[in-house]
Simulated assay, not measured.
Amino acid sequence: MEKTRNFHDKLIVSSAPHIVTDSDTTKVMGTVLLALLPAFVAGVYVFGGRVVLLAIACVISAVGFEWLYNLITHKEQTIGDLSAAVTGLLIAFNVPASLPIWMGVLGSFVAIVVVKQLYGGIGKNFVNPAITARIFLFISFSAQMTTWPLPRTAASADAVTGPTPLNLLAGGETSKLPSNMEMFLGFIGGSVGEVSALALLIGGIFLIWRKVISPIIPAAFLGTVFVIAFLNYGFSLHMAIFHLCAGGAMLGAFFMATDYVTTPKLPMGKLIFGIGCGVITMAIRIWGSYPEGVSFSILLMNICTPLINRLTYKYYCGGGKDEK
């Protein structure tokens, strides 16, 4: 009887799925940081050393705010999982290189304390922290968030800032648009981490190869952007590629629309989510007063995620019809 009691004391029963893996949050976030490295290097090359200062400030403040919140609330410290570091770096990627450092720190506070920790910490937030911080900064400091430094190769004594390709398109200045190759490589103005489509593509493919993210959302997101642009501009392949490389499409599709917590769990839900992001992005770009729509599209689809999950769960469970 004593042996039986000891056996039951050690028996641990948990709900499915039962997955054996050596992966954990720290390893996943470390892989994401590694995938962001090409875009970070591209940002430093295009905009100079201030990118390093801005990134360090955002990362340190994000980690610091999480540490301080856990200390004040007597919670277990979670800074070792690197999720706060990823959030801080993504905030730096989503703002101009010229943004005042204190504004980047304020963005980290909003992302970590308001969006993440007040809702229970990692795994509990219902919207993406970095995306929400970007929108908060844009609404609060629109002048600073829309002052775009020119690439060092283009800046001169009388012009150090200028419009992004999407700003030029929205203003009807199509003759001044950079080539698709310039946009693909990153020799354009814009936010720190979104100028080089090539660097972001390398990082995104790396995450898919390491099975950190599913390809469904990026493919649905970017595919929808491509198709809508292709049709809207009279079957123009040039403009379809332009919209893939412009703005935050690549950064959003690979690094923020794929967040585990705020996106659907099932494949059909991921497909719906990605298509929704693409549709909203292009609706804002084509008909909206603001030239870019990636951040707003991801935030709105984050809010729809519980509904998408419920609908797709019912579909996979046979509709959930009640017995009569």
Score class of each variant (00 low, 15 high):
Thr4Trp: 04
Asn6Thr: 08
Ile12Glu: 07
Ile12Ala: 02
Val13Asn: 06
Ser14Ile: 11
Pro17Ser: 12
Asp22Leu: 04
Thr25Gly: 12
Lys27Val: 04
Thr31Met: 13
Thr31Gln: 13
Val32Asp: 10
Leu37Met: 14
Leu37Phe: 15
Ala39Arg: 05
Val44Pro: 03
Arg50Lys: 06
Val52Gln: 04
Ile56Trp: 01
Cys58Gly: 01
Val59Thr: 07
Ser61His: 04
Ser61Met: 09
Glu66Arg: 12
Asn70Arg: 11
Ile72Tyr: 09
Gln77Arg: 11
Leu90Tyr: 08
Ile91Asp: 08
Ala92Leu: 05
Asn94Leu: 12
Ile101Asn: 05
Trp102Met: 14
Trp102Gln: 14
Gly104Cys: 10
Ile112Asn: 08
Val113Gln: 05
Gln117Gly: 12
Gln117Asn: 15
Leu118Ala: 07
Leu118Gln: 14
Gly120His: 13
Gly121Val: 06
Gly121Pro: 03
Asn128Cys: 11
Ile135Val: 15
Ile135Trp: 11
Ile139Trp: 13
Ser140Pro: 13
Leu150Tyr: 06
Leu150Ile: 03
Thr161Glu: 06
Thr164Asp: 09
Thr164Arg: 09
Thr164Lys: 10
Leu166Pro: 02
Asn167Arg: 10
Ala170Val: 05
Thr174Met: 14
Ser175Pro: 01
Leu185Glu: 08
Leu185Val: 15
Leu185Gln: 11
Ser191Pro: 02
Gly193Gln: 12
Gly204Gln: 10
Lys211Gln: 15
Ile213Arg: 09
Ile213Gln: 05
Ile217Ser: 01
Ala220Ile: 01
Gly223Ser: 09
Val225Ser: 01
Phe226Trp: 13
Ile228Val: 10
Ile228Pro: 01
Leu231Cys: 12
Tyr233Glu: 09
Tyr233Val: 03
His238Pro: 00
Phe242Trp: 10
Leu244Cys: 10
Gly247Leu: 03
Leu251Arg: 00
Gly252His: 00
Met256Leu: 08
Pro264Glu: 02
Pro264Phe: 00
Lys265Cys: 03
Leu266Tyr: 05
Phe273Glu: 00
Gly278Ile: 08
Ile284Cys: 00
Ile284Gly: 00
Asn302Met: 07
Asn302Asp: 04
Pro306Leu: 06
Ile308Asp: 11
Asn309Phe: 05
Leu311Tyr: 15
Lys314Ile: 06
Cys317His: 15
Cys317Tyr: 15
Gly320Phe: 10
